[in-house]
Every structure is written in structure tokens, then in C-alpha cells.
Amino acid sequence: MDDCALYLRHFNLKERPFTLLPDPSLLYWSPQHKRAITILRYGLMSRAPVTMISGEIGAGKTTLVQALLRETGAEQRVGLISNAQGGRGELLQWILNAFDANDREGPQDYVALFQRFQDFLLAEYSAGRRAVLIIDEAQNLSAEGLEEVRMLTNINANKDELIQLVLVGQPELREIVRAPNMRQLAQRVTASFHLTPLDEAGVQAYIAHRLKTVGGRGDEFSEAASRRIHDRTGGVPRLINQLCDFAMLYAWNDERHDISLETIDSVLHDGVFFGDTAMEPAS
């Protein structure tokens, strides 16, 4: 049995509360995340050509996308791309693959790929379904790639657009879209939201929520410990998860059922947590 399994039994938990994998069932609905999912829902409901969600690394963007995917119904055909890269034509192949609409035995030049994609969109429209393309880590696309994606929103039937885009990425995505050469894309962004890190109270509520969700009491971390975690993670959920996971491991090793400030400082002192935003010894 590994150490993590042992600390679960020690704290009487059903599963690790601070896993780094995106898990909608553990999502803490902070005011920021509630607004972000509302914007995503609004974008889909209003048939916005482009919806954009941005935030720092580890802010919970991908978990929000997973939560959104759980809500989509039969009237929507969703394609999800993560970390797409490549030049003209390659991106279109990524998109076709995301919708499981790529015929690998057919011709693969750009004109054939575009025709295949247009035929796919028309078939979905005829079946009463809307195509939604979600691009995670969209900041990795080049300006040319973003423009190619933007041009897909020009495909329409009568007055109806056949595809909606959801762009999800780090803060630089907003700067890319706001650049003068991206004006046509920016004008198509109907709904957008920027996720900011959790404040001190939010960190404490976040930790308590995740613990209660997996069977914990919710008050295993002292207020002083939560404050230190906020200081050293900047309120970024992924970093909070990393530090809390180590803290619970240390508490188990010390045969303690509560995580104190001393426990957090021990983790920081040993240098096992590489997300320390302060980068200095705890006082």
C-alpha cells in the first residue's frame, strides 16, 4: 500500500482530496468559478460565435471545461482539442479528429479537409445538432492558427452559424486576441471571463470543501495553516493541491490528524513543494 493510500485511511477519506487531475466532482464553486461557468453556459445558449475563458496556470480552467462537458446534451456535438499546434491544414486535421470526422483514407490536402469539415457541419445542422469546438490551451496557437479557427465561424446555413468556438487559455490569450491583427477575431468574442486566484478566505473554503467532498471533517487544516498556504501558492488551486497533499502526507507521517502551521512550514522547509511563490524560508 502506498503512502497516499495510508494517509487516506489515517484521515478516514474515500479518495485523495487534493489530486492534480481535473475532477469536476471536486470543483469548488468560488464566486469566480460560478461566474466563469455562467459565461460558458451563456455563450452556448446564446450561440455566441466565440466564447473565451482565461486564467493563470492551475486556476481551474480545464476543470471548468470538464464540468461544462458534463452538461452538454444531445443537441450539441462537442469537439475538444488540447495543446493543438501546427500550420495550415494540420489544425483542421486536429479539429476533424476532435469531432471524430476525419476520413484518413481520403485526400488530405487543405481543400479536401475543409470540404470534409463543411460537410460534417451541414450534416450536424440537418440532424438538429450544433457543433461546439473547445480549444484548451488556446494561447499555444499561432496568430495564423487563431485566424484559421476564426474563419471557420464564417461557415453558415441561411442565417445560422454552424459552429461555436470556446477558447480557453492562459492570460496571454487575451493579449493575443486583443492585438491589432486579431481585430476580426476579437469582434466575434461575444462572451469572455478571466479567472483570478482565490483570496485568503477562498483558500480556506476551497480546502474545507475538497476535504468534506471526500469524507473529511473540513477543518483538518488550521486557519494559520490555510493563511500560509494562501501566501505560498498565491491562491492558485493547482498549487494549493500540491502543498496540501504534501501537508497531509507529513501529518500522517507524524501521526497527527490535524494540519498545523508547523506542518506547512516543515513541507516548505524541506523544499519538496516546487510551487512556492514566495521563494523564501517561512518565518
Rank of each mutant, 00 (worst) to 15 (best):
M1R: 11
M1K: 05
D2N: 14
C4N: 05
C4Q: 09
L8A: 06
R9V: 00
H10N: 00
H10L: 00
N12P: 02
K14Q: 13
E15K: 08
R16M: 15
F18A: 00
F18E: 00
L20I: 14
L20C: 07
P22W: 11
D23W: 05
S25I: 10
S25H: 09
Y28I: 08
W29C: 06
S30H: 10
Q32C: 07
Q32E: 06
Q32D: 15
K34E: 11
I37M: 09
L40G: 07
Y42G: 08
L44W: 14
M45L: 07
M45K: 10
S46R: 15
S46C: 09
R47A: 09
A48K: 01
A48E: 03
T51C: 12
I53K: 13
I53G: 05
S54N: 07
G55R: 11
E56S: 14
G58N: 10
K61P: 04
V65D: 05
V65I: 09
V65T: 11
Q66G: 01
L68R: 08
T72V: 13
Q76S: 14
Q76R: 15
Q76P: 03
V78L: 07
G79W: 07
L80S: 06
L80W: 02
G87F: 12
G87V: 03
G87H: 10
R88A: 11
R88M: 09
G89Q: 11
L91W: 02
L92G: 03
Q93N: 09
I95W: 08
A98N: 06
G106I: 04
P107V: 12
Q108W: 09
Q108K: 06
Y110A: 02
V111T: 14
L113Y: 03
F117P: 12
Q118H: 12
D119Y: 02
D119P: 02
Y125V: 09
S126Y: 03
S126F: 01
S126M: 05
A127L: 12
R130D: 06
R130Q: 15
L133S: 11
L133D: 13
L133R: 14
D136K: 07
D136I: 08
L141Y: 03
S142M: 08
A143M: 13
E144V: 14
L146V: 03
L146M: 10
E147G: 15
E148S: 04
L152A: 12
N156A: 04
N158P: 02
D160N: 15
E161R: 15
L165R: 08
V168M: 14
P171K: 06
R174Q: 11
E175F: 03
V177K: 07
V177P: 04
N181A: 04
M182V: 10
S192D: 14
S192E: 12
H194K: 13
L198D: 13
V203C: 08
A205R: 12
A205L: 13
I207Y: 10
H209P: 06
H209K: 05
K212T: 08
T213C: 10
T213R: 15
T213M: 14
G215V: 11
G216I: 12
D219M: 01
E220P: 01
E223Y: 08
I229P: 04
D231S: 04
R232L: 01
R232Q: 06
P237H: 09
L239C: 07
Q242W: 06
C244G: 09
D245W: 03
A247S: 15
A247V: 00
M248A: 07
L249Y: 09
N253P: 00
H257I: 08
D258N: 15
S260F: 00
S260R: 01
L261M: 05
E262C: 00
V267D: 14
L268D: 00
V272A: 11
D276I: 13
M279Y: 00
